[in-house]
Structures are given as C-alpha cells and as structure tokens.
Design a protein around this nucleic acid. Structure first.
Lengths: 259, 259
DNA sequence: TCGTTTTTGATCGTTTTTGAGAGAAATGCA
DNA sequence: TGCATTTCTCTCAAAAACGATCAAAAACGA
C-alpha cells in the first residue's frame, strides 16, 4: 500500500481509498484505519460518500469494486485472502503463456493481475477489451491490440456491437477469461449481457480458453449466461475448490490447475 | 518546496500557490501558511481569488487542481509546458461543442486538455483513439467509444488497420484534431504515417473538422502528411500566430479563432 | 508630508470534519 | 438454535477550518 505523507486532506484520502479498491478489488475498514491513521468512523463516512458517488460498493467489513459487488463471502480470512489467491492464480496462469503467443485478456481483477505480470513480455501480442489492462501495460510490455467499442464504465471494458468487428479480424492462441460465477449446472455467468456477449465471441474463436476464477466464485450464479463448460479448456483456481467440483470438471475433459 | 525570499508580493505569492497546486496536485492551508509566512486569512483570500479565476478548486483544508489527478505527474509535465496557451485553446474549443454532439478527439496534449473539460458533459458522445483521453474520462462524462487497434506507445493512441473498421461505423459531428506541425504550403503533418492515416480517415467523414494547435507549431513540417487545409473547417490557436498566416487561412475559407 | 487605498492579521461566531461511545445488526461457531 | 464477537449505525461533543468583520500596517499618489 502507498503510504501517504500525513496529514492527508479528505478528498485525497478518498481518492486513495478509491484507487486502492480499484487495484485490490477489495478493502477492509480495519486495514484502511491503520494505513490512513484515522478513526473507523471517518473511514466509514468516506466509504459512504464513495458509495453514493458510485465509486465502490460497501460490504460488511469493508468495500469492493462495483464489478465485484455480487461476491459475498469475500473476507474468508483475517487477511485479504481473496486477493492473495487471485495473484497466485495469475502467476499460475502466466506459466501457461508460451513465447510469441497472442493472448486475449478480458476484464476483471484476476486478469488484471495477470496483465501486471506481463510488463517484460515484449514477445507477446496482447488482445484485450480491458481499458485498465491496456493502461497498465501502456508504457512497456507486449504489443497491445485494444478492442474498440463502447466503454462500460462499471467494469472499464469495451463492449457493444463495435467490438465484434475487430474481434473478427484477429486470432488469439490463448484467451484468459474472468467470470462472476461458475457453477456445474449453469456454467459461466456474469452480471452484464453485453459483457457476456464479448466473452462468448472471444471464447468461440480462441485456440485455447483459460478461465481464471478463485474458489469463492464456485457455485455462484449471476445474471447473464456466458457459456457452458464445453467452451473452456483450462480452469485455474485455488486449492479451496471442493474436491468433487474438481473431479466433475476433470471428468468433462477440463484441465484444472490449483494455484 | 521552494523557499522564496521574503517579503513576497501578493501576485507573486499567488503564482507560487498556483504552481504548487499544479505540481503537487494538492496543498494544505497550514502548509502554505508556514512556507509563505503569512496568516491563514491571507492564504484563504489567495485561494478564493485563484478559485474565482478557475486556477484551482478549494476543498476543506486546502485546495486541489482542477484536473484532480492526484497520481501521474509524467505526462502532466508535457502539458504544462506551453500549458497556458494550450489550456486557453482547449477552453475556446470547448465552446464550439453543442449539446448532444458526437465528438471525435484524437491524441496529443491539447486535445487531452479538452477532454478534461468534458467531465460533466454527459450529453455528449465521445469517439476517440486516445487511451489517455479515455482514461481521463473513464469514471464520468460523455459516453465513450474507443477506437480499437494497435496501441502506439509513444503517443498512447490506437492506430493501424483495425481502426478503420470501427471508424466506418460511426458518425461524428465535430472532430478535434491535434497536429505536430502546420504550414501554409504543406498543410498538416505529423511524425507517424499510421497516425496520419487515422487522422485523415476521421477528417474525411466528420461533419466539421477543428484543428487545435498552438502558434509554436506554425510553419513546422513533420514527416507524415495528414491533409491539406481544405479538409479543415476551423483552426483554434493563440494570438501569437503571425497576422499574415491568419489572413491567408481566412482567405482560404477557414474560420480562425485566437484564444 | 498627509490622506487615501490596498493589503494584511486578529478575533469571533458558525460550519464542517472528526473521534468516541452505546445500542442494534450481522457474522462465526458450537 | 444460542452465544460470543465483530461490525454497523446513530448520536453527541471536541477539534479543525471557515467566513465575516474590523483595525492595524503598508503602499500609493498628490
């Protein structure tokens, strides 16, 4: 965490909280209190204001990004477990990328974590609809092809009819996808149909589709259906995924990696 | 902080505050009091005046920049160089935008300045190939259509063959273009042919093409030819542009605005 | 030099922000 | 389910910052 020089003005503090939520996906009131050296009451008030402005979503114990808002059991441990798992998943996924690959990355905090690992991979071609992934790699790293389209503010990704045109003109060897929920019965789901449409389009034409999702998303079902398990080749998740779940997926022919 | 020699004249002190806000992004009343050796009352009066002139935004405890980017100082330096002229040009250009317009913005620091003025313009549709402009308006403002394509790192814009697909599917009322150089004989030129290609494509199909360029770019010729003056409807520049230049352009039917 | 205008600093009542505490609600665990 | 613990909301008071006002100081012009 960035340690600001104290004291900090209120707007500055809120901006700090906001960027922290954006980067980590989730923040805890107690952590913020320690790092910002103010009382929990102030933290709560800040979170309230930021929530009113649509910058984040408060949850019991802290706050999450708007796109992560349907996740529930987020504070599984005293530490920020979810984010640790996410970065381990990203590292595991990174190993799957070969030299010279063309890679697709979609939106979400886990895939953003993967993007951060690619800053030195000038050998790759990265196709993405994530504004944040592109910004993260704006100064160095793979050659970047950003899918055009309408910016969906809540997820900071490009969606809509204009995206399909570009997607039809490129080929990706490996597509790394995030999801809001995955479930044996319903397959992959996410909050927004437009988002789902783009994911589906990519999945349909990628050489290999790799799903990145921490175990907290298992058996969660969201609004918009993305695809069935048939479309997925590899799942990278963490060791907390229930054994039966893993078995069932492997029986279906998926490669399941536990980071 | 720069320690000035005392006493300091009022306008000088205000200019100091202004540059401090620009550099730091945020200042505190108490810090200013200590460093400038004047009472808080004076500081407050200064801040009040600076706010009236639109130089900064007061907050409880101090003040912040108008373009409240608390992070990122790299690119800002570039914008601050000829910033007075550029921001005046941007303000002048902003007046040309009508309610509900669909607007194209291309890359460059002047057009980025214009982007910053659009944070509350939810009535607009903004089409752009500038990653920075999109990032600047990522959280609020116009509906954003980002042109897909390959990211050209040096300019942080999308270029290449993939751009044309998207551009063909949208119409913009007003296109605001930057340039590396403009010259009566050679017209508009820029450093990169790919960049030039996109600019040309946009200019060809926009309802009105508005060129934003400070006078320092006059009679400069760069490598890649963008277009002739025929393609341009309006030039927004500063008062330092030589009179003959202005006359000559007006004779050709261009509207020339001196900010 | 004197009178006028501008700038500055101090004071005071008001508003905003912050922190602490009590009771209510949510969570975890047996 | 019941109980312990954490977290939340609400209220209130202290602290910090604010605006307004007025008098002193400085700058200015005649």
């Amino acid at each position: 965490m960035i340690q600001p020089t104290f004291p900090v003005l209120a707007p500055q503090r809120r901006e700090l909280i906001r960027s922290l939520v954006r980067d980590e996906g989730i923040v805890r009131v107690e952590d913020l209190r320690q790092n910002l050296k103010v009382s929990v009451a102030t933290i709560r008030r800040d979170l309230e204001i930021l929530e009113e402005n649509g910058k984040l979503q408060r949850v019991h114990g802290g706050a999450v990004t708007m796109e992560n808002r349907l996740e529930e059991a987020v504070f599984d441990d005293k530490t920020n477990q979810a984010s640790k798992e996410k970065s381990r998943i990203a590292e595991e996924a990174c190993k799957l990328i070969s030299t010279g690959d063309s890679v697709y990355l979609d939106g979400g905090s886990t895939t953003l974590g993967l993007a951060r690992l690619l800053k030195d991979r000038t050998d790759l071609t990265l196709v993405t609809n994530s504004l944040r992934a592109a910004t993260e790699l704006a100064d160095s790293g793979p050659k970047i092809l950003l899918i055009g389209g309408e910016l969906r503010r809540i997820s900071q990704t490009m969606v809509g009819p204009l995206t399909s045109g570009v997607l039809g003109q490129v080929h990706v060897d490996k597509a790394f996808m995030g999801t809001m929920g995955f479930c044996l019965k319903s397959g992959l789901t996410t909050t927004d149909p437009n988002e789902a449409f783009v994911k589906n389009l990519v999945a349909a034409q990628a050489g290999q589709v790799i799903l990145l999702a921490d175990s907290g998303k298992a058996e969660k079902v969201s609004f918009a259906r993305v695809s069935d398990w048939d479309a997925i080749d590899v799942l990278v998740t963490d060791a907390k995924l229930p054994k039966p779940f893993t078995k069932s997926l492997r029986k279906r022919g998926l490669k399941v990696l536990l980071a």
